[in-house]
């Protein structure tokens, strides 16, 4: 029985930390949906946003204003990206755009480090990374408060975004642009505003993801590598699906923890580093479009 409880614990911890991958993947999906651009810089945006946030806090700005200042900064980043990178590269091939966003990622990482330094910062959200007593008492499970908060925050953001996509005029325009940018702009949907909106939303998502990661592992460069794990998440979930990003994140989170705990010891541990990627390869072989993605059709 205790073994089974332990298994549940591992899975729950995995699922909850998986929501953090989902958060990073979410920003990626937003941009891909609107502009068919693989934004490789999403990981760098996570790092940039949270480092800026911590930087502002160090200047003595209180928590909530610092949050909003960072949001403004991310909007500015989105604006510059749209004007300086995406606009000149309109109608280029996907590979070209991908390489350009790799460049963008390097710019953001470099700027963040130049402005705020390279040392590891602590970020205290007031939520400890320790088990919640209530759950131990009632269910006998050890579940970290931080993990649980991250899960709830992720769920909240996803709900808000999904509602926004579905019911607002902006969301409708966004879906139209995603479907066919040319047709959308010809009926008067402001393409530039939509792009700006999407990149800003991705920036906010990046900030929240960064705060969650930062509170757990410290605000440091390793966040960028962690964010790379959002890529297998996307492959499993599909690049253009918000529910896909969530489910993909949960699958990756849970399976990497389970594999690490039960298979890791046979291989000397630390298989978390590559297990998600190998899992993604198997998905690619059987279902290249992901669980929820649209079927990839290439026309000659």
């Amino acid at each position: 029985m205790t073994e089974f409880l332990f298994f549940i614990e591992v899975v729950v911890a995995g699922l909850l930390s998986g929501t953090m991958y989902s958060l990073v993947a979410l920003g990626f999906v937003l941009i891909y949906k609107a502009s068919s651009t693989f934004n490789f810089a999403q990981g760098a945006m996570v790092f940039f946003a949270v480092l800026a946030f911590v930087g502002f806090m160090e200047l003595g700005i209180p928590f909530i204003p610092a949050f909003f200042v960072t949001v403004l900064l991310m909007v500015l980043v989105g604006f510059c990206t749209e004007r300086l990178v995406l606009n000149p590269l309109m109608n280029q091939s996907e590979d070209t755009l991908l390489m350009a966003t790799i460049g963008l990622g390097f710019v953001l990482e470099g700027l963040a480090q130049a402005a705020w330094g390279v040392e590891v910062r602590r970020l205290d959200l007031g939520i400890g990374d320790f088990p919640i007593e209530w759950i131990i008492d009632n269910l006998g499970l050890f579940v970290s408060a931080l993990d649980l908060t991250a899960g709830l925050v992720a769920a909240g953001m996803i709900t808000v975004l999904a509602l926004m996509f579905k019911y607002t005029k902006m969301g409708l325009g966004l879906r139209a642009v995603a479907d066919d940018p040319g047709a959308a702009s010809s009926i008067g949907i402001p393409l530039k505003n939509i792009m700006l909106l999407v990149w800003s939303a991705a920036g906010v998502v990046a900030l929240v993801a960064g705060m969650m990661w930062g509170a757990r592992a410290g605000v440091q460069f390793a966040l960028v590598d962690l964010a790379l794990k959002a890529l297998p998440v996307l492959i499993i979930g599909g690049f253009s699906s918000i529910p896909g990003a969530i489910i993909g994140g949960l699958i990756i989170g849970a399976s990497e923890k389970v594999l690490e705990v039960y298979l890791g010891p046979f291989f000397g541990g630390a298989i978390e580093g590559w297990a998600p990627y190998v899992l993604a390869i198997f998905f690619l072989l059987y279902r290249p479009e992901g669980l929820f993605g649209e079927k990839i059709i290439r026309r000659v």
């Binding site: 300086l84 990178v85 000149p88 590269l89 280029q92 070209t96 390489m99 350009a100 790799i102 460049g103 963008l104 990622g105 390097f106 710019v107 953001l108 990482e109 470099g110 700027l111 480090q113 130049a114 330094g117 390279v118």
Partner: peptide, 24 residues
């Protein structure tokens, strides 16, 4: 030195974007 290595990263990134736009 860390600032210099950050600048180096920014320059590489900017160059990639510039080359992608003007001389792929």
């Amino acid at each position: 030195a860390t600032i210099i290595s950050s600048i180096e990263q920014v320059v590489f990134g900017v160059l990639i974007i510039v080359f992608m736009i003007y001389e792929p």
